[in-house]
C-alpha cells in the first residue's frame, strides 16, 4: 500500500472514530443535564418545593433512553473496530448496510438528508474493512450535493455477476473521487454512476491479493 493510500485508509478510520466520539459526547451531554436536573429538583425539594413524580419519571426515562442510545453507538464502534481482525470473512450484508447507515447518520443528518437501508438477506465473503470503506465513501459522495429533504436509499441484491449494492435518491449526478474507484477496485468490485445512483457490484469470492 502506498503512503497516500495508507493515509486515506487512516483518514477513513479517523472520520468514523470522530463521528462516534461526537455522538457519545452528545449522549453524555443529555445524561449530564438529566442527572443535573434531578439534582436541582432534589435541592428544591429540600427547600420545601414538592417534587412532581411525572417530571421525575420523564427525566429517568430520558436517561435510560440515552443509555440505550450510547450502548448502541458503542456496539457499532466495537463491530467497526473488529472489522480489521480478518482480511476476509463471510458477512451478513443486511447487517453491514445497517451498520454503515448508522455510522453515517451524523453526516446524513447534518446534510439535512435521510438514509433508508432496505433489509436484505444476502451474504458475501470479502474484506469487511474494505467493504465498509467503500460504502462510507459512497454515502459521503452522495451527500456532497444533498439538500434538505434528500431521501437516500441503500439496498443490496444478489445478481448473477455478484452482490449489487445500490445507493439511490441522489439529487444530481455524483462525481466520485478517483480514490473511491480505487477502493472499489481493491475489492475486485465494479463501481458505476448510473441515473443519479451509485452502484457497486462485489464479486461473490474475494480477489487474489497475491500475499
Amino acid at each position: 500500500m502506498s503512503d497516500t493510500s495508507q493515509r486515506d485508509d487512516l483518514k477513513f478510520f479517523g472520520q468514523v472514530s470522530a463521528t462516534i466520539s461526537h455522538d457519545l459526547k452528545n449522549v453524555l451531554a443529555v445524561i449530564n443535564e438529566g442527572a443535573g436536573l434531578l439534582d436541582d429538583l432534589c435541592m428544591l425539594a429540600g427547600k420545601g418545593r414538592p417534587i412532581e413524580p411525572e417530571r421525575l419519571a420523564s427525566v429517568a426515562k430520558s436517561i435510560l433512553g440515552q443509555v440505550r442510545r450510547g450502548d448502541a453507538i458503542i456496539k457499532n464502534m466495537n463491530t467497526f473496530a473488529h472489522s480489521v481482525d480478518e482480511d476476509v470473512r463471510s458477512m451478513d450484508m443486511g447487517e453491514m448496510l445497517t451498520l454503515m447507515g448508522e455510522l453515517c447518520s451524523r453526516p446524513v443528518k447534518a446534510a439535512g438528508a435521510s438514509l433508508e437501508v432496505t433489509p436484505c438477506e444476502c451474504h458475501l465473503r470479502a474484506d469487511p474493512y474494505g467493504v465498509e470503506r467503500v460504502l462510507h465513501g459512497m454515502i459521503l459522495c452522495a451527500l456532497k450535493n444533498a439538500q434538505q429533504g434528500t431521501a437516500l436509499t441503500l439496498s443490496a441484491t444478489m445478481e448473477a455477476e455478484g452482490l449489487r449494492i445500490l445507493l439511490a435518491g441522489l439529487p444530481q449526478e455524483p462525481h466520485p473521487e478517483e480514490q473511491l474507484h480505487e477502493t472499489a477496485r481493491a475489492l475486485g468490485a465494479q463501481f458505476h454512476v448510473r441515473n443519479r445512483s451509485l452502484e457497486l457490484t462485489l464479486p461473490t469470492q474475494p480477489p487474489e491479493t497475491g500475499n
Partner: peptide
C-alpha cells in the same frame, strides 16, 4: 437534541 434542550432549559 430535544431532551438536552428541555432539561437544560429547566435547569
Amino acid at each position: 437534541e430535544t431532551e438536552f434542550l428541555q432539561n437544560l432549559s429547566d435547569r
